[in-house]
Design a protein around this nucleic acid. Structure first.
Ligand code: MN
Ligand code: MN
Ligand code: ZN
Ligand code: ZN
Lengths: 126, 126
DNA sequence: GTTATTAATGCAACTGAGTCGCAAAACTAG
DNA sequence: CTAGTTTTGCGACTCAGTTGCATTAATAAC
């Protein structure tokens, strides 16, 4: 599965991730490209890009869905797992390249870990 | 603010948390009491109970809002912070009383930490 | 117990993110 | 260029959560 055809819409969405180089909420993304494509298309393109290991998704503090570029993932192996930080002031999200140790929980099989830190970002904590 | 009047509806909601003694999704809670009160009332009661430090809220894996009883919190001090575990099979959520160390992130002021682990619970991992 | 005050509730309408089905358009292979 | 398949637009829909307002119920004062 995943991206098969490189359409104009796909290129437009990918360019946003390349240029801005930071996490994007779907709501914001839809706003950015609203003159170029339908919101349903945005959702579907993001789905395919994620299935291909090009971007990854997570939920922000207000429950909205966000996406950011992956580093070294493929359709088969989504290896780029990390926590996220969202600023309470400016709402920006950063992918954190820190490793947080999760202790084993007896009789439970942990399959995934979602960590969202919130607080003041570098710019907003001045 | 918080709970001021102990109404029938408030008592009903509180009883559910006392009896079941496990985390409840708002959607499930509304279903449980749908013959006794309006869904808006459920949302408002949960808000007030949370403001009073009696319950705490978090988002489950599918983005739905969940609540569970607090241990030792008050309206002023919400001290009962902990990660949650949601089963991918049965959807149940557990409050985990484990402590996960978050390293400091330079130039960032971390104010809160939301951790959701997903996987197989004790019952479902057999 | 009665009354006045104010908080809590019910109800209906609304909001907004995300989804679905289907016909039309755009790719790609041959 | 053509046929086969994927992608897109569009409109309608779903569903969790919210809002405004009129009504009801809890509490306190008397
Ligand atoms: Mn990330
Ligand atoms: Mn909990
Ligand atoms: Zn910021
Ligand atoms: Zn389970």
């Amino acid at each position: 599965m995943g991206i098969i055809r490189k359409t104009k819409a796909v290129t437009t969405v990918l360019q946003i991730f390349e240029e801005k180089n930071e996490a994007q909420s779907v709501v914001h993304l839809i706003e950015l490209v609203k003159d170029k494509m339908n919101k349903t298309t945005v959702y579907r393109i993001l789905d395919r890009l994620e299935a291909d290991g090009i971007i990854h998704s997570f939920n922000g503090k207000d429950g909205l869905k966000w996406y950011a570029k992956c580093k070294g993932c493929s359709a088969e192996h989504h290896t780029d797992k990390h926590p996220h930080f969202q600023c309470t002031e400016c709402d920006k999200v950063e992918c954190l390249s820190i490793d947080i140790k999760i202790p084993t929980i007896k009789n439970h099989k942990v399959e995934s870990t979602d960590i969202l830190l919130t607080g003041r970002c570098e710019v907003c904590s001045i």
